[in-house]
Amino acid sequence: MTALFFKEWIKLRLIWGLILAGNAAFCLYLFLDMRQQFRIEHAEMLYYQASRIGRLFYADLQYVPALTGAALAVAQFAPEMAKGRLRLSMHLPISLDGLILIHLTIGLIGLGVILAFDLAALAATVGTFFPGAFVHSALATAAPWMLAGVAAYLGGVLVLLEPCRPLQVVNLAVAGGLVTLCHLSTRFNGADHALPGLALMVGLLLPAVLLPARRFRDGGR
């Protein structure tokens, strides 16, 4: 198991670092953009826009987690599927489900670190200009976007592991549907009540990923 972690770390560290750097650059942009707004506009108007009109100053962040999740899935599983390299790992003395779940654990830890960084940066940015209530609201508003990141990662794996093209399209539609549901709300705290149900649906992706993995092992049957 340690060897698998090590193998995945060696494979992912460069691209993971690049994705993290990309997220950091985006968060810096988010901070500078909000600082610029406070420079050119009266603060009381920005408070009004944020709390009453419902303007989300950090709305640009919403698709970043999904892109991050999808990129990480491709970085981790595209090389495994190229020329069927995953089959080599299948010779290890570990069950197929165990093998895939270890891969997913590594990917989810990597994704979790990046998403936690995004949330921390969001809290720091909003907290610099607004009081605590706005920070809590921003974190709750961004929660379904983070969930979309997990859905995009697991959905990406679901698509990549599937050996049959038409079923890849089905898996892509399911993953896309889930990511879309996570982005349905356009207002702050709008998804607070929907989050448990969305989390449950995204949670179903975890065991579902084992299905295409088994089909891959069995040669696409």
Binding site: L178, L204, L205, P207, A208, V209, L211
Partner: peptide, 8 residues
């Protein structure tokens, strides 16, 4: 896995 995928 089939049940999870089907339910999803």
């Amino acid at each position: 896995p089939r049940f999870a995928f089907a339910a999803l």
